[in-house]
């Protein structure tokens, strides 16, 4: 419980959820992250279709695939299912401390 949590007079009854989980980042769960080799990628979109999170997105206006690392849990399904083996799972490079 944090002090940011609201009191009983401030919240809607019956647990009607006031926030979308799009505001809840699950990206920090991962150990490995998918990294794509653009030369091998054929944009077949299997990574988009097989991601359990919806963290791999197709951007039709740009004609490209985007990985949303703020939700990616690093399961590796995209890398496993990629027919051209364009995706590899890698340890993220450590940020400078």
């Amino acid at each position: 419980m944090s002090s940011k949590d609201k009191g009983w007079k401030e919240i809607a009854p019956a647990g009607v959820s006031p926030k979308s989980s799009i505001g809840f980042m699950t990206g920090d769960w991962k150990t490995y992250m998918p990294v794509r080799d653009l030369e091998k990628c054929t944009t077949c979109l299997m990574c988009v279709l097989y991601c359990p999170e919806g963290a791999v997105r197709w951007r039709p206006e740009m004609g490209k695939i985007e990985f949303d690392y703020s939700f990616c849990k690093g399961c590796g399904i995209c890398a496993n299912e990629c027919p051209t083996k364009a995706i590899t799972m890698k340890l993220p490079e450590k940020e400078d401390e």
Partner: peptide, 21 residues
């Protein structure tokens, strides 16, 4: 809207208090 969710230690109590009201 999402009705009947799971509310844990941080919110369940508040909903019960609402019922009492």
């Amino acid at each position: 809207m999402t009705m009947g969710p799971i509310a844990l230690q941080n919110y369940y109590f508040e909903f019960k208090r609402q019922q009492e009201e």
